[in-house]
């Protein structure tokens, strides 16, 4: 994702790298443009990797995550 996208992106954090990879796989399968990134310094997280998502997709992504019973820590603005 470009810097431009970062302006309008959201960050999901996870307890573990397993949960982060599971969410990434799930989102990509559903056709969302997401990227695993190191957790930005201003966010506190259990796992060092976080999922960057486009702001416009976030509601649908979160619905999908709840529906699939995937584990996340929290949702942040970039």
């Amino acid at each position: 994702m470009s810097e431009k996208h970062n302006q309008a992106s959201r960050i999901i954090t996870f307890p573990s790298i397993h949960d982060a990879l599971k969410a990434e796989k799930h989102c990509r399968k559903a056709g969302f443009k997401v990227k695993l990134i190191p957790v930005p310094r201003h966010i506190s997280s259990n796992c060092g990797m976080a999922l960057e998502c486009l702001n416009r997709d976030i509601e649908e992504i979160m619905r999908g995550i709840r529906h699939a019973e995937l584990v996340i820590d929290s949702l942040h603005s970039y």
Binding site: H18, L21, P38
Partner: peptide
């Protein structure tokens, strides 16, 4: 080192473990 460091090679190693588990 899988999932420890956040860089590409660390993430790639974590992916291999994740895919095997799946």
């Amino acid at each position: 080192n899988p999932g420890r460091s956040g860089h590409r090679l660390s993430l790639q190693a974590a992916r291999i473990i994740f895919e095997t588990r799946e």
